[in-house]
Amino acid sequence: MRCSYCERRCEITEGKTGVCRMYTVSEGIIKERFPHRWSSCGASRLEAVPFYHAYPGSRCLAIGTTSCNFRCQYCSNAFIAKEDPEIQQDLLYQLTPHKLVSMAQKLNCRSIIFNVNEPTVSLPSLLDVAQEAKAAAIPMGCLTNGYMTVESTELLASIFSFFNVSLKGLSSHFNKKYVGIESCKPVLRNIRRLAGDRHVEVTTPIIQGTNDCEIDTIADFLTGVDPEIPWHVFRLLPEDEMMGTEYPNIQAIDAALQSARKKLPYIYFHNFVGSEWVNTHCPACGSVVIERFSLGCGGDKLNMLRCEDNRCPDCGQKIKVLNEKTPFGNKGV
């Protein structure tokens, strides 16, 4: 039977698995193979995930499972996302939803973030966690590659109130060669859907000479979805199958972002130590309203929040931020 969790829509026979190896068919239904097994569970800062416009400066419980439905050549978590999940089971945390939520409380975490691999491969477990988290008034967010079906997108929207969707590239050539999918159309569709009533940020890793030529087109797409969407442009770290390739040129990417910055006020260029492009500027007057510091590779942190009431202290302009002042599960502004 056909799996309908992600857009690969794998044909799975009884006892077998699809591309992600996280679902099987048992007694005629698609079942999660390793429920409530977690590869990661630890405290982190929201900025490190990264979320720059959600609960600034707060701590989250960062969790993940195993495997992925993509095969990115540059995966920085390949040892989790590309390995056979079956052989990893002995290494995983076995934590019930109740235990996870109580761990988040013990660690004074404001939210729970799924950020290591793709949440679509573990949706039933995440639905269970969401129930416990909602009862405890702990919002959940996630990083996702956005390649899920329409039905799964609705499930994700019911679990998570904020998303960082990875839009890796637009061309079919890029997606086939570097990501292992035919097209990014489902990702674009899902970004539009989620941005409709959820807080969405977008991340694009830039491989120089490959997808940097798409910067303006991606910016145009995001502008069409929501001109206030925060966009994280990542300098790709050459790892995994791309180990040994050149590090992308920071000045060249910065220059390529110049015209995009005129369309999208919240563009960030980071994933390298000492980045100068991690602060939030007021779209109206240009003042720094959120100041951050970046150590790269999940080392970003909040330095100063100047818009605690979601307004620029200098000119009063609304700043898009999801926090306690915005309704649970709704957009920041």
Binding site: L237, V273, L295, G296, C297
Partner: peptide
């Protein structure tokens, strides 16, 4: 070296 969890970012 500036490596975070073995991710090589450069030097400092």
């Amino acid at each position: 070296c500036f490596s975070r969890n073995l991710h090589n970012q450069g030097t400092m």
